[in-house]
């Protein structure tokens, strides 16, 4: 089930939380939603789930508009809100039964679905405990189980792994990946590595606008631009090597990394690579290379670059 967002704007007073946002998510896609605090991630998710309404523009989930057909949209969405609100006084199993009923799970399938959710989310030992008594990680699992109970076509997860331990994070990621094969998933997170590991597509928004959109490789390439190498060349004097490197036609810029005489950072000119040139240079001068590492732009750098003010 596809999600289409067209020209969505939402303001709180004078501040625009979402600013003419348009994008589309296709079935089978896991979209990672990134952005600094207050970028409009949660607001967008709340509009998709019909909790809030946009001022202008529209959101369609499987062709149904959130403004005209909210009931239909809500049926197909599984939503895990930020901070994972739950009825703390309810036992886990009662809570799941309550959500199943609200989501219109057929009475004859109810038991089976609840059991399945308890198994997939690893809640077997806690099913009769009150939610209040559970640790944060288990509460998160209960929230996730509630979001998945009606086998929704669309899954909206607002920071699904907060409060989980590393093992649980990996489990939840695997679960999301498995689910994401046939469904449409949007998940937001602060943890870039997580988004990179889980999502097929990453979207970074800032001040309500999309500032980057693509796979993690695409984003990196986009931000990286020119090749950057860190080389350690020994066998010659520091200044000779520096000069020789600077004279190479493919190299635009050379820099010392530290006080250490032999380590350089070499930036190539656009569209060319300098590894061979450096190697040849060393051969002809009798120097030798002890280290050569391409410096990859990390997603963190991309993030910082596109969201910097």
């Amino acid at each position: 089930m596809d999600i289409q967002i067209e020209n969505l704007t939402k303001s709180y007073g004078v501040q625009k939380a979402v600013d003419s946002l348009s994008f589309e998510v296709k079935t089978g896609e896991i979209l990672g939603f990134l952005g600094p605090n207050g970028a409009g991630k949660s607001t967008t998710m709340k509009i998709i789930t019909c909790y809030l309404a946009g001022d202008t523009g529209d959101v369609k989930v499987g062709g149904n508009s959130v403004s005209y057909n909210p009931e239909k949209v809500k049926k197909h969405i599984g939503y895990l809100p930020e901070n994972n609100p739950l009825y703390l006084e309810m036992p886990v199993i009662d809570y799941l039964r309550f959500v199943a009923k609200l989501q219109g799970v057929k009475p004859q399938d109810e038991k089976e679905r609840i059991l399945e959710m308890i198994n997939t989310c690893g809640l077997k030992g806690e099913q009769h405990k009150k939610i209040r008594e559970l640790s944060k990680g288990y509460k998160q699992r209960v929230g996730l189980a509630g979001a998945l109970i009606h086998d929704p076509d669309v899954l909206i997860l607002d920071e699904p792994t907060t409060g989980l331990d590393p093992n649980q994070i990996i489990e939840i990621r695997e679960l999301i990946k498995k689910i994401g094969k046939e469904k449409t998933v949007i998940l937001s997170s602060h943890i870039l590595a997580e988004v990179e590991a889980t999502c097929d597509r990453i979207m970074i928004i800032n001040k309500g606008k999309i500032v980057a959109d693509g796979t993690s490789e695409q984003l990196r390439k986009q931000a990286q631009g020119n090749e950057l190498l860190r080389v350690r060349i020994e066998g010659g004097s520091r200044n000779d090597v520096f000069k020789a490197l600077q004279e190479q036609s493919t190299i635009s810029f050379v820099d010392f990394v530290s006080e250490e005489a032999t380590l350089f950072e070499v930036q190539s000119k656009p569209e060319v690579y300098s590894a061979k040139a450096i190697f040849d240079l060393c051969v002809s001068n009798g120097w030798y290379i002890t280290e050569m590492t391409p410096i990859e732009t990390k997603l963190e750098d991309v993030f910082r670059e596109v969201t910097a003010n």
């Binding site: 709340k46 009931e71 239909k72 809500k74 809100p81 609100p85 609200l102 989501q103």
Partner: peptide, 14 residues
């Protein structure tokens, strides 16, 4: 206060 209203209102329920 607890935010469960968001959970409730995003279910197919008026």
């Amino acid at each position: 206060k607890t935010g469960t209203i968001e959970m409730l209102l995003t279910k197919p329920l008026s």
